[in-house]
Amino acid sequence: MVIPFVRPACSLLEVREVGKRYDGRTVLDGVTFALQRGEIVSLVGPSGCGKSTLLRAIAGLDGDFSGEIWLDGVPQRGSSARIGVIFQEPRLLPWLTVADNVAFSAGPRRGSDPRVDELLGEVGLADARQALPKQLSGGMAQRVALARGLFPKPDLLLLDEPFSAVDAMTRTRLQDLLLSLTLAHGTAALLVTHDLDEALYLSDRVLLLAPSGRAGAGRLVRDIAIATPRPRSRRDESLAGLHTELFDGLNGIGALQS
């Protein structure tokens, strides 16, 4: 069943009937949902169903799509300082210091901006401002990416599997850091992840994107609200049933495709 669009009051992000064709194939078909201020929403689904493609459209990195994307009541067709993007890899510029990387949206050598030190303090890297990316661990580099994403004071963070390249312990710490940062800055977040536990721990809602048919386009098939307020325990028993619901949903998708 496709989720119909119901426009709530004061939505920060509205995705309306977004479709995408690439190389003669439909990748996304009529994807519709809304995201509220301060809300964290995870987007899950099998590989190839268009999750990252959808994120690129929302970020303004790909304007070749049908449908509409609205931010705070204004239609979007391009990048916006009100939307921050954090990728799977930190994508730091190797010739710039940590401080200059954080402030890059303001210019290539703006690391002296007072906001940089504030953000580096928040992500636990106050002493690393003059370090180069090659001197950082994977977890440290992703902390810099989080600080860089927050530097323009965005209303919305888009995160494309940002913690998948680090070890399990670092991943849990980065998840907790994301929660504290979005709360402190009042920032909403849309997170693409393959990790159901991560989605359930971080999110207010989880959206399940699925291809329709054997080689069909990605469509939104489930919108699951998580009643337990954040921050929540990773051992919260109420999440177990939701994990099963998502897992069964993904298994059902796999059966339809096989």
Rank of each mutant, 00 (worst) to 15 (best):
P133E: 09
D167E: 00
Q88P: 06
A81S: 15
F87D: 03
G111F: 08
A189K: 03
L119W: 09
W95E: 06
A165D: 05
K153V: 04
R171V: 12
L96M: 15
V144M: 13
L208Q: 07
D72Q: 12
P94H: 08
G73H: 11
Q142C: 04
L93V: 15
K134Q: 03
A81H: 14
V123R: 05
V116T: 07
G73I: 08
L174W: 10
W70K: 01
D155H: 02
D155R: 09
F151I: 00
S212D: 10
E161A: 06
V166P: 00
G121D: 13
E68M: 00
T170P: 01
I69Q: 05
F151N: 00
V144A: 04
E122D: 13
D155P: 05
R109N: 10
S180G: 05
A165F: 08
A126T: 12
L209H: 13
L207H: 09
P75Q: 13
G84T: 01
D160P: 11
S112F: 00
L178S: 04
A128Y: 11
S112D: 10
R82V: 05
R129M: 01
L200Q: 03
A184H: 09
R82N: 08
P75L: 11
G124L: 04
G73D: 04
A147S: 09
W95L: 08
K153F: 03
V74D: 09
A103I: 06
P94I: 02
V123A: 09
A188G: 13
V192A: 08
R143N: 05
G138W: 14
G138L: 07
V192H: 02
A168G: 01
V85C: 02
A168N: 01
L178V: 09
L208T: 06
L158M: 08
A168E: 01
D155Y: 07
P154E: 04
M169P: 00
A188C: 05
R173K: 14
L125H: 11
K153N: 14
F104E: 05
P75H: 10
D117Q: 14
A165E: 02
